[in-house]
């Protein structure tokens, strides 16, 4: 089958969606399909620019494709009679972020009109696709609420599951992923000062800004935790991340209201590690069940400290929790083979 994967791009900025589209293409090719990637530049400032970008996408044509898999706004507006939407992003600023008052679209008559136009174009596009899939229940709920549409849940699989293995269960808890305020690595560092055990923490990943990394470093220094908290800010190859996760005692991931299960937690489960998370972490709670596949507590340093101690002190319970997490994770069937099968069906 000749397939086009359609995504947009902000040049020189790479995020999860780029990673996803690259793996999707590789996996489709591995399944014998001929695949090309389309990357449409997207500039959402000033907001009025969005009009022309939407219309530009609508005016584009894809030739000679049996199937189009589209991921993001506004690239998914490119027309094709056999289009499957695997929705990573609507333009949230016109939806939930607008309601939350955190949109770049102003609350002026012009802004309200732009918001209406985005919603109209989205709804028209969605009703004309062959299949409508969303990567998370949160996205499904938004689609239902704002566009009145049902969709299938098709979660994103791990990109290199074979690298995440059940390793040695060392003496540290690993926290991977991007470092910023919404991922709340600082909360873990704060919690570490209240622990009574000798548990260790490894935080590793690229910081969104240098200040995000600096703040964390400063906290470690301030609380005198440098012997127990290892901070490795920066981009690390997947092998290194996999090694940290595979040999950890458990993993931790505390994002604010994440849409999806979170790559960090999925990788942890793949490596047979239980995950420590908090009650307002959103989609992570679809994977982490307290006392079964991990630990869920209030987003509070003292509550977190208690769980960190428990993870460290009840080692065999922690390991059992990790093994159980892996079992439940694999049973969910979230892998590329199933994903490709559903996308091209």
């Amino acid at each position: 089958m000749k397939i086009f994967v359609v995504n947009n791009m902000v040049p020189f900025v790479r995020g999860g969606a780029e990673e996803l589209s690259n793996h999707l293409i590789q996996q489709l090719r591995d399944h014998g399909h001929r695949v090309e990637l389309i990357r449409v530049p997207f500039k959402y400032e000033p907001p009025e620019q969005i009009y022309s970008e939407m219309l530009a996408c609508r005016m584009m044509q894809i030739e000679d494709a049996d199937l189009v898999i589209a991921l993001k706004f506004p690239a998914y507006l490119i027309p094709h009679p056999n289009k499957v939407l695997w929705l990573v992003h609507q333009y949230r600023q016109a939806y939930d972020m607008w309601e939350a008052g955190s949109s770049n679209i102003p609350s002026t008559p012009n802004g309200i009109e732009l918001k209406r136009c985005i919603t109209e174009a989205d709804s028209d596009c969605f009703k004309n696709v062959r299949r409508m899939c969303a990567i998370s229940p949160v996205i499904q709920q938004r689609l239902k609420r704002f566009n009145g549409l049902d969709s299938e849940l098709l979660r994103t699989p791990l990109n290199a599951p074979e690298q995440f293995v059940e390793g040695e269960y060392g003496d540290y808890i690993f926290c991977g992923g991007r470092i910023n305020q919404t991922k709340r690595q600082y909360l873990l560092v704060e919690a570490m000062r209240y622990t009574s055990s000798k548990c260790k923490l490894v935080i590793a990943g690229p910081a969104d800004s240098s200040s995000d990394g600096d703040k964390l470093q400063e906290l470690v220094q301030r609380y005198g935790l440098s012997d127990r908290v290892h901070l490795d800010v920066g981009f690390h190859p997947r092998e290194k991340i996999a090694s940290w996760a595979s040999n950890a005692l458990a993993c931790a991931y505390l994002p604010i209201d994440e849409d999806s299960l979170g790559y960090v937690s999925m990788e942890a489960n793949q490596a047979a590690k239980g995950v420590l998370t908090v009650t307002d972490s959103g989609g992570i709670l679809d994977l982490v069940f307290h006392d079964e596949t991990g630990w869920v507590c209030e987003p509070d340093p003292i509550a977190l400290a208690a769980q960190l101690d428990r993870i460290h002190e009840k080692r065999s319970e922690t390991i059992a929790m990790g093994k159980n997490a892996k079992k439940r994770w694999l049973a969910m069937g979230i892998n590329w083979a199933n994903t490709i099968e559903r996308l091209v069906a």
Binding site: E48, L55, M59, C117, E120
Partner: peptide, 21 residues
């Protein structure tokens, strides 16, 4: 052709994109 797309989206003819286009 473009007008038909705009109308399918319920965009009005005074949309800023019309002048730009």
């Amino acid at each position: 052709q473009i007008a038909s797309s705009l109308s399918q989206w319920n965009w009005t003819s005074d949309s800023p994109v019309v002048n730009q286009l």
